[in-house]
């Protein structure tokens, strides 16, 4: 699959794809949704958004999906493709796995298993 050979997603791309999980959105709505999903951490400027959008369009992870005229200006909508969904899922799995490893080590450091212990929080009792 194409996604397996691709490098990791940067945070703005990750959240733009995540914003489109619920359905098609136009640019301004994507910015607001990204800010909301990232807890205010990722605030995309207009130029930055379209830099991300251009790359995602180029990779076929999103597509333009309809246009309407609002206040005399064309408003274009974008939606996730199947490949975009697969890449986002893969990235989310990778982050979850990375987080799991760190959480496990953090817990180990807080509650070190004593020598000869029969039980570790990570493994079921025999």
């Amino acid at each position: 699959m194409r996604s397996s050979s691709r490098g990791s997603l940067r945070e703005p791309s990750y959240f733009v794809l995540a914003a489109l999980l619920d359905g098609r959105l136009h640019g301004y709505a994507v910015i607001k949704r990204v800010e909301e999903l990232s807890g205010g951490r990722v605030k995309l400027a207009a130029g930055s958004l379209y830099s991300v959008v251009d790359r995602l369009l180029g990779e076929g992870l999103i597509v333009a999906d309809g246009e309407e005229i609002i206040n005399g200006r064309a408003r274009r909508y974008y939606r996730l493709t199947e490949e975009g969904r697969a890449v986002l899922t893969e990235a989310a799995d990778r982050l979850a796995e990375a987080a799991r490893v760190v959480h496990a080590r953090l817990l180990d450091s807080l509650f070190p298993p004593s020598a000869g212990a029969q039980f570790s929080w990570r493994t079921s009792p025999a």
Partner: peptide, 28 residues
């Protein structure tokens, strides 16, 4: 059109673009 919608949506009631936003646009 898309860029303007976002820029004007974020800068309602302003007469001038914010300097940081203007710089970001030029660099973009």
């Amino acid at each position: 059109d898309e860029l303007l919608e976002i820029l004007i949506g974020e800068a309602a009631h302003r007469r001038w673009p914010q300097p940081r936003q203007a710089a970001a646009l030029v660099r973009g």
